[in-house]
Write a protein that binds this DNA or RNA. Sequence first.
DNA 1: GCGATAGTTAGCGATATGGCTAAGCATTAT
DNA 2: ATAATGCTTAGCCATATCGCTAACTATCGC
Lengths: 113, 113
Amino acid sequence: MAKHYLDLSLLFHALADPTRRSILTRLAETPARVTDLAGPTGLRLPTVMRHLSVLEEAGLITTSKDGRIRTCAIVPEALDPVRTWLDEQRAIWEARLDRLDAFVMNVMKESKE
Amino acid sequence: MAKHYLDLSLLFHALADPTRRSILTRLAETPARVTDLAGPTGLRLPTVMRHLSVLEEAGLITTSKDGRIRTCAIVPEALDPVRTWLDEQRAIWEARLDRLDAFVMNVMKESKE
DNA sequence: GCGATAGTTAGCGATATGGCTAAGCATTAT
DNA sequence: ATAATGCTTAGCCATATCGCTAACTATCGC
């Protein structure tokens, strides 16, 4: 069905840029043309293009070209691997409540410095 | 209570590296010394140090030094902003079910190429 | 004190990132 | 047919990233 899960590193990297996150949020409203996306960012077209290709390679958006217009749209399931990873981590992290003890110990040690 | 939320960009960037994610997973088991963390990675100490400082600046871990030993521990709440952002996005993305129509239209257009 | 251990700092090299301009190409409008 | 529009490509610049080695500092064990 999909191979959007490409790679967590690609996903996280794509999400690490505020411009790209704003593009995603903008695309969440409705699909848009490249020029439409460039407008709000204040960036030049080639720069936006690069961001779009990063997003596309991460599987976060799809684009299609009709005539001279390229339309971009989000791929909602693309965030699933991120969510899954977060859930896994939370499970592990919370499972170790005694981690708190170690944390407190560290804080105590730190206060000795 | 905390100011760990520093910045989504810092968080995503920190999570974008597989070595750093593996360090986090390792730390989820139990706090560890720098050398302990370096072992499994196969990387040199200074390299690991750099990863640790990225993680610490993102608020994902805390470290404290006792004698010559630095102990690292995860900061579980640090992932909260990421989770919050994901939840927000999912809410927006799913709210626009008609996005599906647009997506289908794009696919149809694409198939014309 | 002396050596081993744990971490740190400084700095190098290769590559990636994020911005730009300039120029090109394809499509649409006149 | 020509001009305007929308995107794309090529390439430049500055900075950041990720790995390393070498050398330094600070403990700890004896």
